[in-house]
């Protein structure tokens, strides 16, 4: 342990250093690709990724988990970390995401709009309001003036998609990016812009990061043209 920090302190050219990146679950595929591309350019950096629901990530950092960078799926949780005094510098928005209705392939229940989620015989499930996606889904329904009681409040977006894929539920509201990642297993129904909610993804260096220089460099890469095009390929809207 001591030897490792001494070596890191020497900063020898061939010495690799580890960067811990905590990222929201919805960023899983995009950030895996991002880290791969970044490491190709910076072979001396070894990126360790930790994916979970954003609130969980914030709690982990609060409890002292070793993190250098946090990429959040909403601003509320980012504010929470900031209020804890655990951020270093201002958070920067690096991506946006939108919502879509997810249904089984072929859309057997004929769902065309948010209002159809309230039709009898349609089993609608949502994310719990404790994760950003759940909060956004509620907002979208409110905007559209639709009242519907979800049959279940799933822990994350992926659970919603897999239950629809398995046929246990008929519809849910998820991120566009998750639909894209799910491919042909499910099908998306667009939500008109006036009802839609735009999710904002901020990124920040964690205060007390072991590797603050590398953290800054990685954040810069995410915001760079190369980083943005990687995100776009997974369905994220630009910052």
């Amino acid at each position: 342990m001591i030897a490792a920090s001494l070596l890191a302190g020497c900063g020898g050219g061939s010495q690799t250093s580890t960067l811990y990146v905590f990222a929201a679950a919805s960023l899983t595929d995009a950030f895996k690709a991002m880290a791969g591309a970044y490491q190709k350019q910076h072979p001396d950096i070894d990126i360790k990724l930790n994916f979970a629901g954003t609130p969980t990530l914030v709690t982990q950092i609060e409890q002292g988990a070793q993190a250098d960078v946090l990429a959040s799926a909403d601003t509320a949780n980012m504010d929470r970390l900031k209020a804890d005094g655990l951020t270093s510098g201002d958070a920067q928005v690096f991506a946006h995401n939108q919502l879509e209705i997810v249904v089984a392939p072929g859309n057997p229940k004929g769902i065309k709009a948010l209002a159809d989620l309230a039709k009898p015989g349609v089993i609608y499930i949502s994310e719990a309001a404790t994760v950003p996606a759940g909060k956004y889904a509620q907002q979208a329904l409110q905007k559209a003036g639709v009242t519907v009681r979800p049959r279940s409040l799933e822990a994350d977006v992926k659970s919603v998609i897999s239950k629809i894929e398995l046929g246990e539920a008929d519809a849910g509201i998820v991120y566009t990016t998750d639909l894209k990642a799910a491919g042909a297993r499910v099908q998306g129904v667009e939500i008109p812009a006036e009802d839609n909610v735009v999710a904002t993804y901020p990124i920040v260096a964690v205060k007390g990061a072991k590797n603050s220089a590398a953290a800054g460099a990685f954040i810069a890469y995410v915001l760079s043209e190369a980083g943005q095009s990687t995100l776009a390929s997974f369905g994220f809207k630009p910052a």
Binding site: I125, A128, P150, R151, S152, L153, E154, A155, S159, K163, E168
Partner: peptide, 8 residues
């Protein structure tokens, strides 16, 4: 949570 879901 997988089989029965989550609703208060």
């Amino acid at each position: 949570i997988t089989f029965a879901g989550n609703f208060p």
